[in-house]
């Protein structure tokens, strides 16, 4: 079985492929977080991460549609982020098994802020005009998300100071 992958050509296509990869990593990471918290019986937060994953999936889908790519694009050669992971990807260590939905949003907020900054820097940089315009557009989108998440955070209860208290000790498994 072969799978055709669109080969982005030119600075704009490269940029969009990168943006797509960024969204996709966020989709996958949130989905993994949802699974992790499901396994640890934290259903509320798992649900919250599933929602966040869906939101990012919409973005990714929009990029594919805009570029007319039928499937996942190949990443530009020598592709690397300047940060350890893509700017919108939440680090694995940010989870806690007793975390609350508010914490999930706090993680998402940080990611959106990073993504916004990432696009702003490109928009203000020396990239070709088409790329700068697209980056500005995406930065604007991320700004909206930041606001959206801030509003969302107001609606969920803020965790008490002892949110990570567990009266039982950890268990041994092997």
């Amino acid at each position: 079985m072969t799978r055709k992958r669109p080969q982005p050509k030119g600075a704009y296509a490269d940029f969009m492929a990168r943006a797509y990869a960024m969204e996709l990593e966020a989709v996958e990471r949130y989905a993994q977080f949802a699974e992790q918290l499901d396994s640890h019986n934290n259903r509320d937060v798992a649900e919250m991460f599933r929602k966040l994953s869906k939101v990012e999936a919409l973005h990714a889908k929009r990029i594919l549609e805009e570029m007319g790519w039928p499937s996942v694009p190949a990443l530009p050669v020598a592709f690397a982020w300047e940060t350890p992971e893509a700017p919108e990807t939440a680090p694995f260590e940010s989870l806690h098994y007793l975390m609350q939905p508010w914490h999930a949003l706090e993680i998402a907020l940080q990611c959106e802020v990073q993504a916004q900054r990432y696009f702003e820097e490109i928009a203000a940089g020396k990239a070709p005009k088409q790329v700068r315009e697209a980056a500005a557009e995406m930065a604007e989108e991320e700004r909206e998300h930041v606001k959206l998440i801030r509003d969302w955070m107001k609606k969920v209860p803020k965790p008490p100071a002892d949110w990570d208290r567990d009266p039982d000790p950890p268990r041994m498994s092997e």
């Binding site: 992790q36 694995f92 260590e93």
Partner: peptide, 16 residues
């Protein structure tokens, strides 16, 4: 098959 590691564990990252 889903990991049993604690959320936040570095091993998730190693698996990735």
């Amino acid at each position: 098959y889903k990991p049993v590691w604690c959320p936040g564990c570095g091993d998730y990252s190693v698996l990735a």
